[in-house]
Amino acid sequence: MTDVNVTELGIPQWWQFMHPLLQVAADGRDWARRDLYSAALDRAGVSEDLRLVQYGSSGNYAAENRVGWAKSALTRARLLETVRRGVFRITDAGRAFLADHPYEFKQSALEELPAWDEYEVKRRVSTSQPEALPEIIDTPSSDPDDLLDAAKANTDQSVAVDLLQRLRDGDWRFFERTVRQLLATMGYGTEGTKLRATTSGDGGIDGVINRDTLGLDRIYIQAKRFRDSAVDSDTVRTFLGSLDTQKASFGVFFTTSRYTRDAEVAADRSSKSVVLIDGERLAGLMIRYRIGTQVRRTVEIVEVDEDFFE
């Protein structure tokens, strides 16, 4: 299970794992990271299915990642200590803190501890251009991966709207070239025979692309620019009929709008392998394969190199 909104699925927030972590470590054992995380997830009641959920931005397992941030906070507050590489143990301060907080606690409780401020980064604020410094928004309920995913989702949504608007307003020939280029970039076709436009005698098919290296199978393309109206079942059946005329087995129908339920049923019941790509999915593929888009900024996320300190 990947690339979903992990908060809506019911995975506890990162700070909600701090208490289970301390409870697990309260036995005084030296806990290996993997065992500690697994035991904390068990105590928090996180199901096996939820443990398989991954962040879209990094591919990390969301629940395990949140436990990691909780462990980092407890280590910073000196409630947990690193015994050796990848092995942790509760401290005397951790035992006392757990006794004072037998139930759930938040980061604000850790921030009251003297040890917390020992690692606080002191930033020098320039007085010459104070307006150039961004406002830091405190969101303790969200871990960094949540924030990255949210920022990427908002950006992608904005870009997707712009892409579809440009395709709808542009020339129909440009739209057809775009979808053929997308398929070629996705790996369909070979050098020199990647794609070709069709002619008026091809039964309404807008393009053809090789499915394999030798060109033994071909994918026939239909591309319809719709603004508000959905592609209905009659339009899809006409496309299926064109595939029959070409004696084709594979087809992809692109649109900038959406499909009716009857249209989706018609494609599903067809004996041919037909894929319907609506506007939302088309924009997502263009963003993923960099068709009409480019990377504006790359952010590098660092973590401690355990090997360095071994």
Rank of each mutant, 00 (worst) to 15 (best):
K272G: 04
T260P: 06
E191M: 12
R196L: 12
D268N: 03
G207F: 12
T256Q: 07
Y259A: 03
A197F: 10
K247P: 05
G187D: 06
D202W: 15
R180W: 06
R218H: 09
D212R: 05
T193Q: 13
S233Y: 02
R269Y: 04
S242I: 04
S200V: 05
D232T: 01
Y188E: 07
T185Y: 07
F254W: 12
I205T: 07
A197C: 02
Y220A: 08
G203C: 06
R180I: 05
D228I: 08
Q246V: 01
L195I: 08
F250G: 04
S270Q: 02
F250K: 11
T185H: 05
F254Q: 00
Y259N: 07
K247Q: 14
G204V: 05
Y220L: 11
R211Y: 10
A223D: 06
F253N: 02
F250C: 08
G189I: 06
A267I: 04
G189Q: 02
G187K: 11
L214S: 13
R196C: 04
F253Q: 08
F174M: 09
T185K: 15
T193A: 14
D202G: 03
E191W: 10
R180H: 13
D244L: 09
E176L: 13
S233K: 13
D234M: 07
S242N: 13
S257D: 02
A223H: 04
T185W: 01
K272F: 04
R237C: 06
T260F: 05
R173M: 03
F175T: 11
R225N: 06
V274M: 03
R225H: 09
L182W: 10
V252C: 10
S200A: 12
F254N: 04
D206M: 06
L183P: 05
F226R: 15
R177C: 02
G187I: 07
I221T: 05
T199R: 12
T255R: 06
R227C: 00
F175A: 12
T213F: 14
I209D: 01
F254H: 00
R196Q: 12
D262W: 05
T238F: 01
I219V: 15
S270W: 00
R180N: 13
I205M: 09
R180D: 10
G203W: 09
T185A: 11
G201T: 12
S249E: 11
R218M: 10
R258G: 02
G241R: 09
T213Q: 12
R180Q: 15
V231F: 07
A266G: 00
E176G: 14
G192T: 10
A267K: 05
A266K: 00
V208Q: 06
I205Y: 02
F239T: 03
A263M: 02
T190W: 09
K272A: 07
S257F: 00
S271C: 00
D234W: 01
G192L: 11
F253D: 03
T245C: 08
G192I: 08
T178M: 10
G241K: 07
D234H: 10
S229F: 01
D268I: 00
T185P: 04
R218Q: 14
I219M: 12
K247H: 12
T255M: 08
I209A: 11
T185R: 14
G251V: 13
G203Q: 05
I205D: 03
R173F: 03
D232G: 12
L243A: 00
T213H: 09
K194Q: 10
T235N: 02
A197R: 14
V179R: 00
